[in-house]
Write a protein that binds this DNA or RNA. Structure first.
Lengths: 365, 365
DNA sequence: TTGTATGCGTTATCAC
DNA sequence: GTGATAACGCATACAA
């Protein structure tokens, strides 16, 4: 069912239907407006995303770039963003960043293309990026090998890209060049949040009497775009208070690995030690490792998780952790998107990192 | 950069470019094929999704319908499907099903539209579905109020819809009517998997000596499209072995609630009791509730989780749980999609539910 | 106030 | 082998 059908049923032209359905209602008689809307609703007419995107130059999709990492609250985040997008008339397309291995050339490995006629092709590697140089009709064209994300953006012409972490500087440059808005506008917004998490953890541990702090990463093969900012915040806190810099460890979740990691940490640092953890699973692994090693929690070892799902409260001892209001944290994405497309939403207050994140005391600190 | 640019650079027509880039390479000279491909790569040309969708009648998007539920492995599932889609040239659009409250009419509440000229509009409720009847030029048009999903499908014309659970019979009927393939084709595929999970849990508990079984749902305000099939499998197992039907309980994750739920269960059923749980968090909540209530685990209470993330192995006691190979379970989706679009992929073996799911023994049973 | 004409990028059909 | 041309559904400048 197309706009022609609506137009025919309402007895007007397609143009009229299009204008009225795009809220250009001022120049038409109320009769016409109502009739067109009624007919559209009656037929269940929905504007075609394809036709719309084609003529407007960009689609109503927003690409969510998910970093290649263990993302503690993916469901909540995507759910919150989807709801926001939906209200603004956009749809979410999730895109998982994957390790660089999976970056094939567009259609054919360009390096294999021989000289044909006046076309000469070659490829070189500059700064670990493949650059294809093509000479066609004595014109030199340089192009970098497109990543999955680049191809998606070119094909989709999205209304925007949401960086959930792990977007490289090259990616941002490419998107800027393509005229595609990126939210949040700069990566520093996230570092603010991550700093806040690390700081909350460190402050709490220190307030509970721990002068030796440590930061515990999750030890898996994935990236960790958030951990570093949190560790750094702990480091800064220690420097500011004249404490020794935090020890850093990587913790596997399985018992043997967790025991080994904690044992080594204690051997090097002594105790008591207060450990700020990347997420709640790492924190749990350390809590139970401490129990197995006969270390008191709290007392010998204190543990603070972060980005709690719901598991922190389900276990004994209940985990001390950092919680946040996901939709509040994401509100600035919603606003930036609304603003970029002139929806002029009434500006809701955006919480500062300090307001959005809270330390939830448990029994492990 | 459009196909015209490529055509100009390669000295051919847009039609030639299009055909070659769609692998219709047989009818052209190798020279032309190479030149076109080289030029496309050099310019970084990517086919426009909009133009493509417009002319083909459907897009290269696949909608992932996520049920309104606590989805244990959402990241893994979406990641696996995205990777599959990517290889086949599709992109994932995630769509979260939300409770029915959020189902506004397309552009205007049709019931409010008055009689205008020859247009008469009214709406009635049939089987809890709003039906809008519109009379236009003495033609009666009936239409149901479109849900978010319906509107998305109409706008997007996706290549397919993946039902991750919670797609209603009406939804499936609508999608069939719209000519949009749904994967898996019938809802029973999932009930097979859910049955398998429940059965594995029940078998294991019985084998460990528990004759009194129970099924524990997660007590939150969300839907639970999977739980029932699992409970039923436990019920069937009990019937087959001549055991009493399983007690059913709903467990909050917070300590007080979990203690109360478990206390009540024990009061009604006595002990020992073996509890099959909806997910690992419920299982953990029960394990630690048992500890607080002074019940031995295992012994007084045995607990089996399911759909483990990674937390099961991080805690002590290590949780007995059901694990699965996500990408194996989703392989049939990939194949159905490939088949629907004649990609003729070599058919990989699809594991049966029994092969895909395994009981991982821990220390709670 | 409404209709007409055009263009967006891709693909299928047919003519050359 | 290759190139015109029309069509897909929508939005908009412009003509009526």
């Amino acid at each position: 069912v197309t706009s022609s059908d609506v137009a025919r049923l309402a007895g007007v032209s397609r143009a009229t239907v299009s204008l009225i359905l795009n809220e250009q209602t001022a120049r038409f008689s109320p009769d016409t407006v109502m009739r067109v809307r009624a007919c559209a609703a009656a037929l269940g007419y929905v504007r075609s995303a394809a036709g719309r995107a084609l003529v407007r130059g960009h689609s109503d999709f927003v690409v969510l770039v998910v970093p290649y990492t263990t993302f503690p609250k993916l469901q909540e985040v995507v759910e919150a963003l989807s709801a926001d997008f939906d209200e603004l008339g956009f749809s979410a397309v999730v895109h998982f960043n994957v390790p660089a291995a999976d970056t094939p050339a567009a259609h054919v490995p360009v390096a294999d293309v021989p000289v044909v006629g006046s076309t000469v092709v070659g490829s070189t590697v500059v700064n670990s990026t493949v650059v294809n140089s093509t000479v066609v009709n004595s014109t030199v064209v340089n192009s970098t090998a497109p990543s999955r994300l680049h191809r998606l953006v070119k094909a989709l012409r999205p209304a925007g890209v949401v960086d959930l972490g792990g977007l490289s500087a090259q990616d941002r440059a490419f998107l800027d060049g393509a005229g595609c808005p990126v939210f949040p506008r700069s990566g520093s917004d996230y570092s603010d949040y991550n700093s806040c998490i690390g700081l909350l953890q460190a402050e709490h541990l220190h307030a509970r009497g721990y002068d030796r702090l440590a930061y515990a990463y999750l030890s898996d093969s994935r990236d960790d775009p958030f951990g570093w900012g949190r560790e750094e915040a702990v480091t800064r806190f220690c420097a500011a208070r004249g404490l020794k810099p935090p020890a850093v460890t990587r913790v596997p979740l399985a018992p043997e690995g967790a025991d080994r990691a904690l044992g080594q940490l204690i051997a090097e640092q002594g105790r008591p030690v207060g450990i700020a953890c990347y997420n709640d699973e790492v924190a749990l692994a350390l809590v139970f490792a401490a129990q197995r090693l006969g270390l008191a929690v709290p007392g010998g070892v204190a543990v603070v998780g972060s980005e709690s799902g719901t598991v922190a409260q389900a276990v004994s001892p209940r985990l001390t952790t950092v919680v946040n209001d996901v939709s509040a944290v994401l509100r600035h994405v919603r606003q930036a998107l609304a603003q970029a497309y002139a929806d002029m939403a009434p500006p809701e207050p955006i919480p500062t990192p300090e307001e959005a994140y809270t330390l939830l005391p448990g029994e492990t600190s």
